[in-house]
Nucleic acid binder design. Structure first.
Length: 516
RNA sequence: GGGCCCGUAGUUCAGCUGGUUAGAACCCGCCGCUCAUAACGGCGUUGUCGCAGGUUCGAGUCCUGCCGGGCCUACCA
C-alpha cells in the first residue's frame, strides 16, 4: 500500500450571508469522516473548506449591518472557521474567495477561457430579482397586489437589461454527456445523476458570467465595470486553493482532479454542469466524483429562516456532545436521503448505539481487566474457535468498511462496525469471564485479551467518526498515538502492558427537561 | 405540462439481475445473566409487500393503469 496515494476532497465554500447551521455542519462532518478515514488508510489527503464571500446579497447584508463588505465577510467567515474547531474538523486548508490567491486564480481562469474563445460579450435582458440574484422567465412570474411582478420565490422582480459576458455552455452539452457516460460514478447518488443527465439532455443555454449591477466581486480582467459571476468565482476555489494557474506545480498536479466534491443537493447542478463545463473549456479535467447529500428537517419541520429553526451547531454540541452528534448525522439515514433531526432520535442513537452497545462494552471489558488482571493487558493462552471467529470478524472489518466509505454509504459502514460490537457483547455473555475468574483464570485472561483486542480494532476503525471517544478508548488500551493507523490493525496488543483506570467513553444522555 | 424517485411489520428502513415458510433495527412481552453506563444476551408477537389488472410454472422483485408522497425542470447555501 503506497503511502502517498493522493486524495483531495472538498466541502462547498459556504456563502457568508448566513451564519453556520446544522446543514453546514452536516456536509463538513461528512467530509471530515472521509478525510480522516483516508489518512488512516494511508492516503495523502488534502481536505479543503472555506467561504464564498462575493455577490450582491453580501454587499447588501453588509450595508444593512452598517459594515463594509470586507468587515462583514471577515465576521461571518470567522464564524465558519470557528465551526470547524467546534466540530473537530481536520481540514488542511480554509480558503476565502476574498483572498488574493483566489482572486488571482479566478482572473487567470477567466483569461484562459477568453483565450480559448469560450467567452463572448452579449446582452442579457429579463426579469431580475435582487433578493434571489436571479433572472426569471416571464412564464414563471405572477402579478402581485400592487401590480408588481412576483417571482416563484415571492420576491419582486424588475426588468433589467445589461451587458454581460457569456460562457459558451451550449457548446459543451455533448461533451458533458459523454463525460457522464464514461464516468458513471462521477455524479452520485444515482437519482441525482439521473437529474443531471435529464437536465443536460434538455438542452443547455449559454451562461451569463458577469454582472454590472453591483461591485462586490472579482473584476473582469480588462473590463472592471463587470464583476465575475459568483458561481464562476466560487467554484474556482477548488483549483485556486491548489495554486491555479500554476498547474505544473506539485500541489496542483498531485491533487487535481479532485477525488470528491461533497455538496448539498441544491447546488448539484452548479457542481456537475457549470463547473465541468468551465473546467473542460479551460482544458482542465473535471473532478472524479460529486456527491449530493440530502437535507435535514428538524422535529419534522423544514429548516427555514421564516420558521427561525436553524440550529446553530454549537447548540447541538453543547446539548449532546460532539461525537454523538457526528455519529448521529452519519448513522441515522442513508447518505443522500433527507432525514429528520429529532431529539428523540438523537437520544435513541446516543443511549442505544453509543452508551449501551459500544460504551458499555468497553466499560465492562476494561473494568474486568482492571480488577482481575492487575490492570494490565492479560496474557492469552491459545485461542478457541469462538475466539478466532470474533477476532476474524474484527480483522475483516476494514475490508468491509472501506468500499462503503468510498461510496459515501456512511450509515451502512457504521452498521457494519456495530455488528462487531454486538458480536462482542454476545461473546462476553457466552464466555462469562466473571465465572471463569474462579473456575479457570487462565481462560478468563484469554477471553479478556480477545476482547481488548476487539476494542482496539473498534477504537481504530471508529476514529474517523467519533475521534475523541475513539482516542479515549485507545488511550485506555495504552495504544500509543503512532500505532493507530489502519495498517496497525494487523498487530496485536502486547501482553502485560499496564493499563490506566477505565472511564466511560459515551455517557448516557439523561433528559433533565421533559420527564415523559 | 415533461422527467426522475418512492409507497414493505406500531416506527425507521433492507430486500441485487423474478424462485423454498418476506428480513433488520427500534418499540413491546417473556426468560437468562450479574462483569458493566439499571447496561448485556436468548426467545417471541405483528405485515392485504399503496390499489387494480397483466406477463410467467412462479412477482415486493418485470409491464400497464390508477391513488398517494417527494425531487428536478437554468443561473438562492
Amino acid at each position: 500500500m503506497s503511502a502517498d496515494r493522493p486524495y483531495f476532497l472538498t466541502t462547498p465554500i459556504y456563502y457568508v450571508n448566513d451564519l453556520p447551521h446544522l446543514g453546514h455542519a452536516y456536509t463538513t462532518v461528512a467530509c471530515d469522516v472521509v478525510a480522516r478515514f483516508m489518512r488512516l488508510d494511508g492516503h495523502r489527503v488534502k481536505f479543503l473548506t472555506g467561504t464564498d464571500e462575493h455577490g450582491q446579497k453580501v454587499e447588501r447584508s453588509a450595508q444593512a449591518a452598517g459594515l463594509t463588505p470586507q468587515q462583514f465577510t471577515d465576521r461571518i467567515s470567522g464564524a465558519f472557521r470557528d465551526m470547524t474547531g467546534l466540530l473537530n474538523i481536520s481540514h488542511d486548508d480554509f480558503i476565502r474567495t476574498t483572498e488574493p490567491r483566489h482572486v488571482r486564480g479566478v482572473q487567470a481562469l477567466w483569461q484562459e477561457l477568453e483565450r480559448r474563445g469560450e467567452i463572448y460579450l452579449g446582452r442579457f435582458a429579463g426579469w431580475y430579482s435582487v433578493r434571489d440574484e436571479a433572472f426569471y422567465d416571464e412564464s414563471e412570474l405572477v402579478g402581485g397586489p400592487t401590480g408588481a411582478k412576483i417571482a416563484p420565490t415571492g420576491a419582486e422582480v424588475e426588468w433589467l437589461e445589461e451587458e454581460n459576458y457569456f460562457f459558451r455552455l451550449s457548446a459543451w452539452q455533448d461533451r458533458l454527456l459523454a463525460f457522464y457516460e464514461a464516468n458513471p460514478d462521477a455524479v452520485a447518488p444515482r437519482s441525482r445523476r439521473n437529474e443531471v443527465l435529464s437536465f443536460v439532455k434538455g438542452g443547455l443555454k449559454d451562461l451569463s458570467i458577469s454582472r454590472t449591477s453591483f461591485s462586490w466581486g472579482i473584476p473582469v480582467p480588462g473590463n472592471p465595470r463587470h464583476v465575475i459571476y459568483v458561481w464562476l468565482d466560487a467554484l474556482a476555489n477548488y483549483i485556486t486553493a491548489l495554486g491555479y494557474p500554476e498547474t505544473d506545480q506539485e500541489e496542483f498536479s498531485t491533487f487535481w482532479p479532485a477525488s470528491l466534491h461533497m455538496v448539498g443537493k441544491d447546488i448539484l447542478r452548479f457542481h456537475t454542469v457549470y463547473w465541468h463545463g468551465f473546467l473542460m473549456a479551460a482544458g482542465i479535467a473535471p473532478p472524479k466524483r460529486v456527491f449530493a447529500h440530502g437535507w435535514w428537517t428538524v422535529e419534522g419541520r423544514k429548516m427555514s429562516k421564516s420558521l427561525g429553526n436553524f440550529i446553530p451547531p454549537h447548540e447541538l454540541v453543547d446539548k449532546y456532545g460532539l461525537d454523538p452528534v457526528r455519529y448521529f448525522m452519519l448513522r441515522e439515514l442513508p447518505f443522500g436521503s433527507d432525514g429528520d433531526f429529532s431529539h428523540r432520535a438523537v437520544v435513541g442513537r446516543l443511549n442505544g448505539d453509543l452508551a449501551n452497545d459500544f460504551g458499555n462494552l468497553a466499560q465492562r471489558v476494561l473494568a474486568m481487566i482492571n480488577r482481575n488482571c492487575a490492570a494490565a493487558v492479560p496474557e492469552p493462552a491459545p485461542f478457541t474457535a469462538a475466539d478466532d471467529r470474533l477476532l476474524g470478524d474484527a480483522g475483516s472489518l476494514l475490508d468491509r468498511v472501506r468500499p462503503l466509505i468510498a461510496d459515501q454509504a456512511f450509515n451502512v459502514a457504521l452498521e457494519t462496525i456495530w455488528r462487531v460490537v454486538a458480536e462482542a457483547n454476545r461473546y462476553v455473555d457466552e464466555q462469562a469471564p466473571w465465572a471463569l475468574r474462579r473456575t479457570d483464570p487462565a481462560r478468563m485472561g484469554t477471553v479478556l485479551y480477545v476482547l481488548a483486542e476487539i476494542l482496539r480494532h473498534l477504537g481504530i476503525v471508529t476514529q474517523p467518526f467519533v475521534p475523541a471517544a475513539a482516542a479515549s478508548l485507545l488511550d485506555q488500551l495504552a495504544v500509543p498515538p503512532e500505532a493507530r493507523a489502519f495498517a496497525d490493525l494487523a498487530a496485536r496488543l502486547p501482553p502485560r502492558r499496564p493499563l490506566p483506570a477505565p472511564h466511560g467513553i459515551f455517557p448516557r444522555f439523561v433528559d433533565t427537561e421533559a420527564a415523559d
